[in-house]
Design a protein around this nucleic acid. Structure first.
Lengths: 248, 248
DNA sequence: TTGAGAATAATAATCATATAATATATGGCT
DNA sequence: AGCCATATATTATATGATTATTATTCTCAA
């Protein structure tokens, strides 16, 4: 089946949503007012239809609000829908902060152990095979750049899917985005071996149907990650925070 | 301060988003294909601008996707952003199912005890006052129709706010919607007194800074609710499921 | 018959322009 | 000063035209 890909860049509207989304979360409009439709159109070389549709999409994600005569404005940050995959992605990629990553990981610390417990109670053989496959890929992956990360993410999202709960499954794209960034820290500091051992323990408990052990193992995994992030947040010069080396 | 109200109904676009959102989640377009721009406009008596902008907002929430020549279509349910307050509201209000409510409550069972633990560790006096105020209102509320529910919700969202974690705070509108429906079950079956005692225990633990006790108390609270919902799901004729009496 | 490539057609995407609705600002009047 | 009418700026809505994309159909050669 062809996975009808969303043409994020071949499409003026979606392109504008991306640009504006990134500008908004980076605080570009904190000082100056958000432009009017006309100005936006001129600045980005798009027609008013395209501009309006982009603004509407950002409104749907809680980032903007518009009223006649009053103009369009960026909503207070508390109203942004952080649980929208795009919004979280813009924040983590364009306005990275250890604080935000820590807060997200703190939420994972509540969600994923519970997901592991549910998976242990409910996962069918096929779901367990998916989890196992993620771990297998983690082990097989050498020191490559992409595959270890992708495999780790696959492991975690397979567990979310195995809960049989749509709300847990829904966290997939969020955890996907956050993990892709988070793993840069955890892997650099603690060796891969330790990480794999922890993941193996989770899988083993789920496969054995031992909910308590699965939850504890997952909790340990994420608790480790959270501690690394918080340590880095308090000590910005240290190892984990040096991300720029590979960035270019 | 004037809380610039969003004009959901005085606005053709937002009105159309509401209508279409409800139609989509209720499965109106499962059989027939989703209409084209032109048809939608004709059917709802709106211009193409309005129609397109509404479709774009629903696209931003993951409910629709559009491609030239192929038309607009409802996305598979797994891609809907259930964590968008509007989407969850449409589902719970227009396509209520005990199954979905149970799944959401299952997620609350992971989130809210963790939130209570964080609140116990971090809440400042002001935040605790807000929580206490919610409980006070719960007690003060008679057998009225709205206030007991509103007060209960205020109690829970005050705890989310007290975590100091933006992602927990973000769950406010979701839990708001779900609780408004959920409470209809729990209150009808178990007496209010028991509920208040449980809430009081949570507040007491948070105020005392006892994270473990706060988490356990909150867990007990939600676990009770979940059991009621699951019981009702398996036994549709029983008390809790009879909601229609008061509906009109 | 089959496969590749070209022509067709349906649909969303984009642009342009005009009018309406609405909230703010302005200025005059009491 | 306070109130009311008027002007003004901005989004909201409507409409028509053009373009881009792509699924489908058709043609023709191997």
């Amino acid at each position: 089946m062809v996975l009808s890909k969303i043409p994020r860049d071949r499409n003026l509207t979606y392109g504008l949503v991306e640009s504006l989304g990134q500008l908004i979360v980076t605080g570009e409009f904190d000082a100056k007012a958000f432009p009017t439709e006309g100005e936006l159109s001129r600045q980005h070389g798009t027609s008013r239809s395209v501009t309006r549709e982009a603004v509407k999409m950002l409104t749907a994600k809680g980032l903007l609000q518009a009223r006649p005569r009053q103009g369009t404005s960026v909503t207070p940050e508390t109203q942004w829908n952080l649980l929208d995959p795009d919004v979280l992605r813009w924040l983590l990629e364009r306005k990275f902060s250890l604080r935000l990553l820590a807060e997200f990981t703190e939420m994972r610390l509540a969600i994923e152990p519970a997901a592991a417990r549910l998976a242990a109670r409910r996962a069918d053989p096929e779901a367990i095979a998916h989890i196992r496959d993620g771990l297998r890929r983690m082990i097989a992956a050498g020191a490559g750049d992409e595959e270890p990360v992708t495999a780790d993410i696959a492991f975690h999202t397979a567990i979310l899917a195995a809960t049989g709960n749509r709300f847990y499954a829904q966290l997939d794209p969020l955890i996907n985005t956050a993990l892709r960034i988070s793993i840069r820290f955890t892997n650099r500091i603690k060796g891969r071996a330790a990480g794999i051992a922890g993941h193996d323990e989770v899988l083993d408990a789920i496969a054995a149907g031992d909910a308590e052990r699965a939850g504890l193992a997952m909790h340990a995994l994420i608790s480790d990650a959270l501690q690394l992030i918080e340590a880095a947040a308090e000590n910005p010069g240290a190892a984990g925070a040096r991300r720029s080396r590979r960035a270019g």
